[in-house]
């Protein structure tokens, strides 16, 4: 196969899997808790800054993972308890509250690190040869890790008892309460998992993009498009949505450039909102 095509396919794969990681966290909090977390991108940003801190300290890159889980999980926990919990079933209020939170987090990052672009050195620098094409090793590893995390999460959700309880809680919270399920605790856990996923995604992309306080914005917008296209509340929706949005974005970027790609994604999202507002795989 032509090495150029292999590279492009890997680029698309990379775009889709990283976007899926970010959209997944958003889909979890939105689909399961009905909370549209506008600050989701800021959790990605915090994860990226965790990578920056670790990098500046000269510590091994992998240490950014526990740090990001700690920071994003901790902030997620506080946010759920103080901000989200009083606002469940009030979608518009949550929207405003999380929007405010996103401003706050961005400004905090700005106060701590400044507005400038920072770079994180790439771990596993160098390239690997795959089907005759040279491709950055780190990106290849990321693709594998993302697929593994997403696959493991879906398998856990679909087959474990905890997953069963969460599905029950999401589908019929009142009945779940009658059965003695700790609905509030499960909701907190779910929100924290969503925050941790965002932080993890932030660590992953940090070495590949300029790290700055506004980093989350771009990702969160694309993640919303994923939910628009894929529909809420199903695994297949997130996968299909990222396939469409991430794939389209990568292909158009490669062929025409990033502005045209963004334009295409916007048009597709609008068409979906217009013609198929519940997405490809909505259920119920």
């Amino acid at each position: 196969m032509d090495p150029l095509i292999v590279t492009q396919i890997l680029n698309i794969l990379f775009g889709v899997t990283t976007l899926a990681m970010i959209a997944l966290g958003l889909a979890i909090t939105f689909g399961m808790l009905g909370v549209l977390n506008l600050a989701h991108g800021e959790f990605v940003m915090m994860g990226a800054f965790c990578a920056l801190v670790v990098d500046r300290a000269g510590a091994p890159f992998v240490l950014a993972v526990p740090l990001a889980l700690l920071v994003c999980g901790g902030v997620g926990l506080m946010v759920e308890m103080l901000l989200i919990r009083p606002l469940y079933r009030r979608p518009f209020d949550t929207l405003v509250a999380t929007w405010g939170l996103s401003l706050l987090l961005r400004k905090l990052a700005e106060a701590g690190f400044g507005l400038g672009f920072n770079s994180v050195s790439v771990p596993l620098a160098g390239t690997a040869t795959l089907f005759g094409a040279d491709y950055p090793t780190y990106r290849l590893v990321l693709i594998v890790v993302c697929v593994a995390i997403i696959g493991a999460l879906f398998a856990w959700y679909g087959t474990s008892r905890a997953g069963l309880k969460i599905r029950a809680m999401v589908g019929n919270p009142d009945l779940a309460r009658a059965l003695g399920m700790p609905v509030k605790r499960l909701a907190t856990t779910t929100f924290v998992i969503g925050s941790c996923l965002a932080g993890l995604a932030g660590v992953m992309v940090a070495p590949l993009v300029p790290v700055h306080p506004y980093l989350g914005l771009d990702y969160v917008i694309k993640s919303f498009f994923v939910l628009v296209v894929g529909g809420l509340g199903s695994v297949l929706g997130v996968v299909a949505g990222t396939g469409v949005i991430g794939g389209l974005d990568s292909v158009m970027s490669a062929v025409f450039g990033s502005t045209q790609a963004y334009f295409t994604v916007l048009v597709v999202a609008i068409l979906f909102l217009w013609l198929k507002p519940r997405g490809l795989f909505s259920h119920g």
Partner: peptide, 11 residues
């Protein structure tokens, strides 16, 4: 056992 939505429809 509630009157409305008595079971988990998705399960």
């Amino acid at each position: 056992c509630p009157q409305e939505r008595p079971v988990f429809d998705d399960l």
